[in-house]
Simulated assay, not measured.
Amino acid sequence: MSLLQPFGPNIWIVDGPIVESAGFAYPTRMAIMRLDDGALFVWSPVALTSTLRTAIDALGAVRFIVTPTCMHHVALPEWRTAYPNALLYAAPGSRDRRKDIAFDADLIDDAPTAWAGQIDQVLMRGNLIATEAVFFHRASGTALFADLLQNFPPDWFEGWRKLVARMDRMIGAEPQAPRKFRIAFSDRKAARESLARIHAWPVEKVLMAHGAPITGNGAAFLTRAFAWL
């Protein structure tokens, strides 16, 4: 399988190494989108190997790097070093968590001019754990979620971790919002306002950092996935 997996027009995904968080092993995934001017937009970067860098550079010049939540920060320093001329965008909370990283700009509810009209975005507000920036790649009809939707294979965890994962809705028939994130939505009115913008997108596919992608009927899937909200 190619390191860069095509996911639609001008979008590729890369599965990275496993990382540990709170004693749980998480797979990692990033996406790369090529803008109309040829510049590359990197979403949730994974560990940067020399092989991966060669493959990415063959697509175009990396100009924008975004971390969709403050929890997706592990690989940022190596990307900052490898692509010093790229603009690094911080999700809410990222600057506080990684004071050692020089971010160039902050993600807000509206896309900057550089990718407006090609990639839409909205901050999923009201959550005490993290404010996630959710994106929509128009050319491929893909919505991108970092942590708000997850789904692990039934045999991914063992022992007590498997029990906790099931209770947290990290394992199920299809991707779901983990229970801890549901509970953490202290301002559901703000969350529903953000979700309304997501539902307005003509979503065909849904890409997640921690779960198998949804490759069809994405809008209907999102309606089911967030019906609890």
Rank of each mutant, 00 (worst) to 15 (best):
H199T: 05
L148P: 08
A173Y: 04
P68K: 00
I214Q: 12
L207T: 01
T51I: 06
G159T: 11
L48C: 05
A165N: 07
K189A: 06
G216V: 09
W228K: 03
N85T: 14
G16M: 08
T81N: 07
P17R: 00
D57L: 11
S186G: 15
A31Y: 12
N217Q: 12
R169V: 00
A184L: 10
G126R: 09
D96K: 02
L163Y: 01
F145D: 10
I65W: 09
T69E: 03
T81G: 08
A143F: 15
L222I: 13
V66K: 03
Y83V: 11
S194V: 07
G38I: 09
T131Y: 00
N10E: 13
P9N: 14
A191T: 10
D106Q: 07
V164E: 01
G141R: 10
N10D: 15
D104W: 09
G8E: 07
F221S: 06
E193Y: 10
A82Y: 06
L195T: 10
A90I: 11
A90H: 09
D36Q: 13
D147G: 04
W228T: 08
L229K: 05
N10R: 07
F136I: 12
G23C: 08
T49R: 07
E132G: 01
L195Q: 06
K180H: 12
A139F: 04
F24G: 11
T215R: 14
A47L: 07
E158G: 13
Q5A: 11
R224S: 15
R161V: 05
T28C: 03
A190Q: 03
I171A: 12
A173W: 03
A146N: 13
H199K: 15
A190N: 00
Y26F: 15
A219H: 14
P9F: 02
G93F: 07
R29T: 01
D15M: 00
A25G: 08
E158N: 04
A82F: 06
G141C: 09
R97K: 14
P175M: 02
N85P: 01
F145V: 02
P68A: 12
I198D: 11
A61D: 00
D187S: 13
E158A: 14
T67V: 14
R182T: 05
G38M: 11
D187P: 04
A219N: 09
D96T: 04
L149E: 00
V19G: 04
S194H: 02
E20M: 05
L52N: 03
I18D: 10
H73L: 12
L3N: 04
L128E: 05
R125N: 07
A116T: 06
S2W: 02
L48T: 02
M167S: 08
V206D: 12
D147I: 08
P92M: 12
F136D: 10
R29K: 06
A86G: 09
D147C: 03
L52P: 00
F157Y: 15
R95F: 07
I101A: 02
F221L: 04
C70S: 02
V164S: 05
I101V: 15
P178C: 00
Y83H: 14
G38H: 10
G141A: 05
V164Y: 05
A102W: 00
F41P: 03
E174H: 15
A225N: 08
C70N: 02
M71H: 14
W12E: 04
V206N: 11
K162S: 14
L229G: 01
F181P: 02
L128F: 01
K180N: 11
A22Y: 12
R63L: 07
V164T: 05
F185P: 03
L35E: 10
A190E: 00
H73T: 08
A90V: 08
